[in-house]
Design a binder for these strands. Sequence first.
DNA 1: CCTAAAGTCCGTAGTCGCTCCGGAGTCAAG
DNA 2: CTTGACTCCGGAGCGACTACGGACTTTAGG
Lengths: 156, 156
Amino acid sequence: MKISEAAAASGCHLETIRYYERIGLLSKAARRDNGYRDYTHAEVERLCFITRGRELGFSLEEIQSLLALAEQTDMSCADVDRLAREHLADIQGRIQALQRMAQELARTIEGCAGGARARCAILSDLQTPADRAAPNATPAPKGGRRPAVHRPGIDA
Amino acid sequence: MKISEAAAASGCHLETIRYYERIGLLSKAARRDNGYRDYTHAEVERLCFITRGRELGFSLEEIQSLLALAEQTDMSCADVDRLAREHLADIQGRIQALQRMAQELARTIEGCAGGARARCAILSDLQTPADRAAPNATPAPKGGRRPAVHRPGIDA
DNA sequence: CCTAAAGTCCGTAGTCGCTCCGGAGTCAAG
DNA sequence: CTTGACTCCGGAGCGACTACGGACTTTAGG
């Protein structure tokens, strides 16, 4: 399988595959006589695993751990489970942080009369430090700092 | 006001302040005789605005627009409102994407018996391409690609 | 007054996960 | 034989910081 086919089969961008090889997440692919990379079914599966993991918001480092665990055939399910649960908790934390953001932002937008500029609530709200602006909200919407899903093209 | 005081007053990391100056988000601060930066109340307010904007998930570029709008004293409230609403929609999109992730992940974790490794649902689920794994979920959880909140220290 | 610690300066490099670039070689179709 | 698509590679760029190292200044304590 050539790299473009592996890309199509895994849903992973071609350049990203090369990138994964470069950073050692994928082992160096076999080469044909012409120097082109040649992928086996197993390698494409590994790639699918990575891609899917990314879609679920795992970092490449976490995915590497998961792959390592997947390779030991005994006594690893509990570890996998723990990792997944930790990750889920992290995602939920991020959802909450975003929800707080959305709430505050919505409240701020509400306050804007919509045309009379003199006392634009949005701008003055932005000027106000978080704790004064939202005494009920958690001091700072800090949570996990995990990198997670990077979604390429598609500009909103 | 020295930089550390400005940092404390604005809740913005000291190095980040210098960074903002470097990229032109803040104009170059006045200097004392010893070369130390000296901040006025207005500059600290601008910094608060930026920090708060970041907390609400605006990108630095968006914040720059907001600041520019804030400086024109007429006819900008509608623009501010539009920007804020667009941003809110983006945040909501990201929340939904994360919720899909969490749902799928939770479902995957559910399937794991918890010890018997032979058929660990989590790992095999990860092996499965997204569309086969979750026929009901949106094809790919792609949404906005805005960078938004980077939260430094604090590891979950 | 001297010393040590803390604060500030600066530029540069590293982080994460890609993505794009340019220039060169290879391959398949017309 | 030419054209276009594909592949190779290393390196730079993105966003928003964070960290580092070496030089300088200021401040507090003895």
